[in-house]
Amino acid sequence: MSTMTQSDLPGVGMTPGNIRSKKLPLAMNLAVAVVAFGLAAAIVYGFGIGNWVLVVVLGWVLYLVGLLIAASRVEGRRAARNRAWRSLIYSACILAILPLASVVWTLISKGVQRLDGDFFNSSMNNIGARDPGGGAYHAIIGTIQQVGIATIIAVPLGVLGAIYLVEYGRGRFANTVRFFVDVMTGIPSIVAGLFILSFWVLIVSPWFNNGEPRFSGFAAALALSVLMLPTIVRSTEEMLRLVPGPLREGAYALGVPQWKTILKIVVPTALPGIVTGVMLAIARAAGETAPVLLVAGGAAAINFDPFNGNQSSLALFVYQQAGDASKYAPARAWTAALTLVAIVLILTIAAKMLARRNSLTR
């Protein structure tokens, strides 16, 4: 019994054209780019209609048009369209990364000016406009306490609420809960601050302070927890819905109760996504200024008691220093912003590492 090869087929021959298709040479690609940006520069500067930004935009458009024409002649229309769309996708990716890279570079370059021991070991107490010292120690303490308390409040409530919506919620009540969660996702942060101001500061706190309303870091934590809740509920709900149904069905078939299935199988499987949602909520809470200003008041001195007295935060510290007339204030604001980003980054990395230790998510 003989084996038929491609060379035995009628009308088909083994030629290099059957194996490799023509591709646009790299030199021609570079030549198209040089001509495009040169033509763009000549148009922009020749007519005096813009600067280098317009040259880059117009040059890139001319480059895509020239690339499409050149690739059509060499590779064919189909391959040329594929190359043009791929270039557009790469361009969109670069445009999306550029602002982020610019923010990170600006934050690091300006934030290192006051990155010293005095900044992390001192507060703004008794620091005047002409004093070069001062630090954000009091704001760091306030941020850690407020965000920590808000996380302790919001994470259990958010995760349990999402479990109810996915595993138990049916009917009108569950739909109502989803509706209010969606509405709360888009509320401005100052609304949460006003709610805690009117409820906790003006009504509840006088019961513990001889009838006088009082600001506190705990009130700021309550406002931040209101902002964190909808993010945690929605992200956890989506992650729980991604858990395959056969995992639940297999556990039920073995006689495992539903609560134990959720605790031992569903939640561990969705844990990396849940952690991501929690970290997004923490990052949002750590960067909020309005609720802290409304219900914590802000303070220049260190206050370790979140339940008594005014307290500051890094976001509020950045806001206050950015608006200060002192020539030393901008450097303190940039360093505080860099510190805030570093804290969120460290927490995110730590949470991701803890989530990866789960054997069911490997």
Rank of each mutant, 00 (worst) to 15 (best):
S123Q: 03
L347F: 13
T5D: 05
D324P: 03
W259S: 09
P156T: 08
A139N: 07
R170F: 00
N51T: 09
K23R: 10
T176Y: 02
P156W: 00
M184R: 04
N29C: 09
Y168R: 12
A40H: 01
L30R: 05
A36M: 03
A281C: 05
L247N: 03
I94K: 01
N310D: 11
G297P: 03
P213W: 10
I282T: 04
F199R: 02
V32D: 02
Y164M: 03
A253R: 00
V295G: 00
I108P: 05
G50D: 08
V243W: 00
G298T: 03
T185F: 06
G171P: 04
N308I: 02
A253N: 06
F304V: 13
L338I: 09
A101L: 12
R172C: 00
L316Y: 07
S198G: 15
V159A: 02
S198C: 12
N82F: 04
R83Y: 05
A41N: 07
P291N: 02
M184H: 07
C93I: 15
A325P: 04
V103C: 04
R81D: 10
F47R: 03
A92S: 14
C93V: 15
V243R: 00
A221L: 08
T339L: 15
F317M: 08
R357Y: 05
Y90E: 13
L24I: 08
S198M: 15
G273N: 10
Q113S: 11
S313G: 12
P10F: 14
Y252I: 15
G161S: 12
I346M: 11
